[in-house]
């Protein structure tokens, strides 16, 4: 799968699940796995850390 930002190759682990965050090793952009169908994933830009994030 290609990084939507810089076109680098993204390796998505087989056991990755929807809601997990994938970081591009080249450009550092973070993507959330929005959906997964077998080895085909749909990615969307991950939300940035919010003021109210945490425990």
């Amino acid at each position: 799968m290609k990084c939507p930002e810089c076109d680098a190759n993204l390796k998505i682990p087989d056991d990755a699940s929807v809601g997990e965050i994938i970081s591009c090793p080249d450009c550092g952009a973070d993507f959330e796995i929005a959906s997964k169908n077998g080895s085909v994933c749909e990615l969307k830009h991950a939300e940035k850390v919010g003021e109210d994030w945490g425990e």
């Binding site: 699940s17 929807v18 809601g19 997990e20 965050i21 959330e32 991950a46 939300e47």
Partner: peptide, 9 residues
Amino acid sequence: FDRVRLEEK
């Protein structure tokens, strides 16, 4: 969830 961390897994 809204983001899957190790805890959720």
